[in-house]
Design a binder for these strands. Structure first.
Lengths: 353, 353
DNA sequence: GGCGTGATTTGGATCGTTCCAATCGAGGGT
DNA sequence: ACCCTCGATTGGAACGATCCAAATCACGCC
């Protein structure tokens, strides 16, 4: 009598299908059928079982079910930098779509650290992730890609592609976006246009710079390598990059930025230098993050719809997970130019400031 | 011979401890001991097994292990709004700490929707989350709290507290932060100070407004209810709120804002209205998000260290998970005022603008 | 009253691991 | 030669669900 309460109060044994069966007067097999909404069970039987579920406070053990069925309701999302609003939005779209499809999301933030990325992906694999959506950390090598391919698990890359990996990817058409943005500046009469920001190694930068180049060349303008300045992918990088180009002998009159965040830094630096944005110097960003509409003046930028990228990568992964024969193709989103207030006509040649 | 390749290429059976045992010439029990680094196994035996692991490409099945051991390496993180940079940082700190402790994070973004919150938490429970870190969606009722308490699973709330829930929480000292900020404005000579933003219902707002009130009353200033204007928790809300107070008969000369995001909107509206920030009107934010140092002028704000909040909630949860008797106490972080450029002395009484 | 038929229900085996009590083998002591 | 100890290894049962083939039930019909 004195031990009874103690035994009961703490850590009581988990309620199982067998318990439910006993309580409802049926077998565990029948209970299992009820749990999975099988049309085989008689209505009254189902109600009996459902009452027992309620009464005993049963909790379905999905991982036991997964073990037996050789499936999993887990999808892994591995993101390089969640504190970047662009990737945060992407993550939200992704998780939303996965949840709607009945999956639970495993999440890890790698902070651009390939070693951490390896660790977390390994851990997620062991926990039974049925698939991966991966935005690879910078510096992820071809070796990592090969290992991943060897895992024989559906993987969808988003935004960034691993070198030489045949894994499937959802990406914006970076080249197109950059080209359209550059064409806009050209149409406004700009002839010396810089490309600011981005890190030399990554495919995203390569593609965006490629689009920029293509536009200039199509307009018959020689690309000046001195006007392409990589930088850190944050606000400070933008500040640095702008300072670099205004110090040139023949400074540019406009800049296409690798990202909005870099563009924010560029705007900071322009203000600091006393240059009129959209008048003395025009700026285009890339991404269209939430903050872009709130700069002064509001930032003209290339929208790439991160939330939609997230949703599509979820869809692509689910497709790969269902059909084993599904091709690991690429899904390319068309970006679009959002014209706001940071671009104006090129200042007259030789006009002083 | 013709079927052989086909059978092998696709969906080969999973490698198990039994397979490893067979390959290494030991029993599955011994393999299991090796996997768990037991000191019981002889070195040579261990090496034999490890070679087999390598050779067969074995993947540990942690959920099978969890099933048997009645444990779980999964922790659930339920966040109201990941697109808010404040919560994104919190999430990153949290995930980082959990990963370091050997846990894998289940993540869900509720988008402030209590129904979705119920759904995802239920799904996570079934999946076997060993504990929850929850930043409750606005509108989460006492009913939800009661249900959650009935689950008998370790829960730590972060930033927000559910009404009447004895669940444990990690929160900043909102009242203190607001008081210090208000005291700063008082010291600068301001006498009519507004509190802009926040939603009336939430505990965070109540606490921050409370601190603001306390400071004013301590200075012998009657609190004018007309100067406390709630708003949406985004930039637009800040714009609205400022417009409201400048239209008053006796407008304030300074504002303490519910959050940095609201403060950003307030700065936008001040610019729009042609009021000099820090000269005609002083502003203090709350949170110190990354963007706060980049406004023009840089925003004076109350730092609450979201990443640290994340880390501490991880630590608090892990403590609760290990010791069943651990108290569900509160962990309160001391915020601090970060002085930048948006506050100046109160304009002279009656001076025109 | 026996039988066929379709609708329900059921017990054993299974998923991959860990726990546990039992076993095995090599020395050591007498 | 025998017993005992101790380190190392092992097979059976268990975790909580599902699958599957077989059993049971209800009912109409000859």
């Amino acid at each position: 009598m004195n031990t009874g309460a103690k035994e009961f109060g703490r850590a009581r044994r988990r309620v199982t299908v067998t318990d439910l069966g006993r309580a409802a007067g049926v077998s565990r097999s029948t209970v299992s059928l009820v749990l999975r909404n099988s049309p085989l069970v008689r209505r009254e039987t189902r109600e009996l079982v459902e009452a027992a579920i309620e009464r005993l406070g049963y909790v379905y053990n999905r991982s036991a079910a997964n073990l037996r069925r050789q499936t999993s309701n887990l999808v892994a999302m591995v993101i390089n930098d969640l504190t970047n609003p662009f990737f945060a939005e992407l993550a939200v779209g992704l998780e939303e779509a996965l949840e709607a499809a009945g999956y639970v999301t495993l999440m890890a933030n790698t902070g651009e650290d390939p070693a951490r990325q390896r660790r977390v992906m390994e851990a997620m694999r062991e926990t039974g992730a049925a698939g991966f959506v991966l935005c690879p950390a910078m510096g992820t090598g071809a070796g990592d890609a090969a290992v991943l391919a060897g895992w024989n698990v559906p993987v969808v890359q988003v935004m960034r592609r691993l070198p030489g990996a045949r894994l499937g990817a959802v990406v914006p058409d970076n080249a197109l976006g950059a080209r359209v943005a550059a064409e806009r500046l050209l149409a406004l009469g700009h002839r010396r246009i810089a490309f600011l920001g981005g890190s030399e190694a990554t495919d995203v930068t390569t593609e965006r710079v490629g689009g920029y180049r293509a536009a200039l060349e199509a307009a018959g303008i020689a690309v000046d390598p001195g006007l392409i300045v990589p930088s850190a992918l944050n606000r400070g990088g933008g500040v640095e990059a702008l300072r670099t180009v205004v110090a040139l002998d023949r400074p540019p009159t406009a800049a296409l930025c690798f990202s909005d965040v870099v563009a924010f830094g560029v705007l900071d630096a322009l203000n600091e230098a006393g240059l009129g944005v959209g008048r003395d110097f025009s700026v285009v960003g890339f991404d269209d993050v939430a903050g872009a509409r709130h700069t002064l003046p509001p930032l003209t930028t290339v929208a790439v719809y991160p939330k939609e990228l997230g949703r599509r990568s979820a869809a692509a992964l689910l497709r790969r997970m269902s059909g084993p024969g599904e091709p690991a193709g690429e899904n390319i989103l068309t970006p679009s130019l959002v014209v706001r207030g940071t671009c104006g006509p090129a200042p007259r040649e030789g006009a002083d400031r």
